[in-house]
Amino acid sequence: MSTAGLALAGVSAAYRGAEVLHAVDLEVARGELLVVLGPSGAGKSTVLRVVAGLEPVTAGRVSIAGRDVTALRPGLRNVSMVFQSYALFPHLTVAENIAFGLEVRDVPRSAARERARAAAETVGCAGLLGRRPGQLSGGERQRVALARALVREPDVFLLDEPLSNLDQALRVEMRAELRALHDRLGATMVHVTHDQTEALVLADRIAVLRDGGVEQIGTPDEIWRTPASVFVARFVGSPAMNLLPAGGPFTPPGDAPTAAAGGDRLLGFRPEAVTLADPTDDVGVAATVERVEVVGEDAYAYLTLPGGHRVVARVAAARRPGAGSTVRVTVRWADTHVFDAASGRRLGTA
């Protein structure tokens, strides 16, 4: 028996005549929390809509819990979807909203209400059952939406940017609760977001989408430490990974054939792989500090190197250099990457 809770095999889909997904292969293990990450227009929400049956495929196959559901209408796929907008009925109470999907499927009202109460307890909104959506905060509405999805006991939960309408503090709280809910339930979840921090914190694995195709799939650590392409290196990380022509300001130690070709290679390294030294030290490359941004205990120094190359370094805020000063810059070579400039694909380390 397949261990996949969800599988997309060669799936393509179009919107208003334009193809928005291109031969997507994606497999989510049973009980896994996969985050689909990418910029606007990458096709993230279309992936969820295809799985839910809200958008037809033009090619490929969709399987849920080992069943081919490609041709099935949404109601027969046994998935639950949580939307960015919550999509609650304003005239119904919380209890009625949670139970609604069961009652329209002819589950007896008493059983539906009992399951709704249990789902509300699981997500922490049991004290709200008699209220209506207009009486709830954003976080409370999100809990109700999660309970409504949970009560159906689906094979797959589909979450479409469910935290994006919350303020920052509540987003942090809710993503921790969402992760804890997943771990308690052992449920198969696909969570869509454009927020890289959300993806890195929540996911068992991340699928990075670009222009309707899968750019990379991996654990959060793999996505962060070994980005498969220049696109992933730039998209994941704030500030983004530094990218310079290989053979430019920095020369890797020893024999490094992957970095030796100069103009057709790019050297990448994150701000934390950069070390700053006193300008009198005989190390590294001289650079001018253009500006410094302080973020709590950390600071980001924006530097200009010989040839006009720009680099960002992460340093302790207490030891940050001043704007306009000169520093010496070195790179921790164990944490560098080499990319092919033409294709953007990662070739290895320097």
Rank of each mutant, 00 (worst) to 15 (best):
M1N: 12
Y15D: 02
L26N: 06
E27S: 14
R30V: 05
E32F: 14
L33R: 08
V36A: 04
S45R: 05
G53V: 09
R61K: 14
R67F: 08
A71D: 14
P74H: 15
V79M: 03
M81Q: 05
V94Q: 00
L102Y: 00
E103M: 15
V104K: 07
D106P: 07
G130D: 15
G130S: 13
L136T: 03
S137K: 01
G138Y: 04
G139F: 02
E140H: 08
E140K: 04
R143V: 02
A145P: 01
A149L: 12
V151S: 11
V156K: 00
D160N: 09
P162A: 08
A169K: 14
R171K: 11
R184H: 13
G186I: 05
A187G: 09
A207K: 04
V208W: 02
G212H: 02
G212T: 02
G213A: 11
V214N: 04
T219R: 13
E222H: 07
S229H: 13
R234G: 14
F235V: 06
G248A: 12
P249Q: 11
D255E: 15
A259H: 03
V274E: 01
A277H: 15
D282L: 13
A286T: 14
A286E: 14
A286P: 11
V289I: 09
A299V: 06
Y300M: 07
Y302F: 15
L305Y: 05
H309P: 02
V312W: 03
A313D: 04
G324M: 10
T326D: 09
R328V: 09
V331S: 02
D335R: 07
V338Q: 06
G344L: 10
G344E: 08
